[in-house]
Simulated scan of single mutants.
Amino acid sequence: MTGNESTKPEGPQHKRNMTRRKVVVAGGAAVVAVGGAGALAMTASADEAADTAAASASASSTAETCYKLTSETTEGPYYIDADKLRQDITEDNEGIPLTLQLKVIDAETCKPLANAAVDVWHCDALGLYSGYESFSQGGGTAPTDAPTGTPTGEPPTGEPPAGGGGGGHEEPTSDTRYLRGTWKTDKKGCVTFTSVFPGWYQGRTVHIHTKVHVDGEWTDAGYEGGHACHTGQFFFDEESVLLSAEVEPYSTSTTTRTTLTEDTIYDQSGTTGGLLKLKYNKKNIAKGVTASITMGVSPDETNDGT
């Protein structure tokens, strides 16, 4: 403080000026605060709009997927009622390891179908069905003196077998039950089976059969009562089948193969028609394949495929 400066108390005018400055500053802060709140409000509003749009798009996408019923197909003649409650259906059969991951949803509500009984059955690496070896026409194995991986002999003659294609049900001719099984879906509608990559036989592309049963009862003897709400087939893309054909024992098959586009059962509709989503090492498919699909079904309807 210098000697020229006044030391007398500040007067009312000064206080009024200070008060005014405080109000102006406070008002400015208030404006900033309001402006910030407005910005936050606008940001929140934009975020909410974006979230709403995303949710709407997601709901629309889900609805489109959900409302498509998975194609119904024929049961084929080689079905055996659910008498093997198991997830591993391999029974030491040779072939490329396959993990089959299935999910079942109500196509109308999109909700998972829990506690449903899912059957799967398919031929072995050379086209034979368990319980029906005398009926199914697999390619057989190559003679022991044939070069490794080289198909030999001529394809079987006669009419293509009805296995998996059409025809009425046939009674089993043997007690074998490999590559067949039934298991229940969990609360998320999911069930997983362990098997081997199927082979092929005359007249059909590579496929797996399935049935979904509901409203029945689980017993020690199997799944009883209820009804089949879905009967379908799963299919494999050509790339995977061609790669599998280079691996033993598939490579020893002498059967003419029907391609996916030539098959009379697959309706060429992709996932809706039963085309599986596959994961595997393209350089070494022999290590194993994981196949997955979601089935949209109508639990109140009966679709037994007969």
Rank of each mutant, 00 (worst) to 15 (best):
T254D: 04
T231Q: 10
R257A: 02
L275M: 15
T261D: 15
T219S: 14
H230Y: 15
A245E: 10
G226Q: 07
L275Y: 12
S240Q: 01
S251F: 11
P249H: 07
T271W: 03
A245H: 02
A245G: 02
H227P: 05
I285D: 05
T271S: 07
V247L: 02
S244T: 06
L278R: 02
A228I: 15
T272L: 01
K279E: 14
G273Y: 12
R257V: 08
F236L: 08
D267S: 12
G288F: 07
V289T: 01
A221L: 07
L275W: 11
T290P: 06
G273E: 08
H227W: 13
K283A: 07
Y266R: 08
Q233F: 02
F234G: 05
H227T: 05
A221T: 13
K287T: 10
G232F: 12
S244N: 03
D267R: 14
P249I: 07
E248H: 12
T290K: 06
T254L: 01
Y250D: 08
V247W: 01
G274W: 11
A228S: 11
A291E: 12
N284F: 03
G270C: 05
L242R: 02
I265N: 03
A228H: 01
E262P: 10
K279S: 12
K277A: 12
E238G: 03
T256V: 14
T261A: 14
V289L: 05
L278P: 05
Y280T: 07
K282Y: 01
N281G: 00
E246H: 06
G226R: 03
A291C: 09
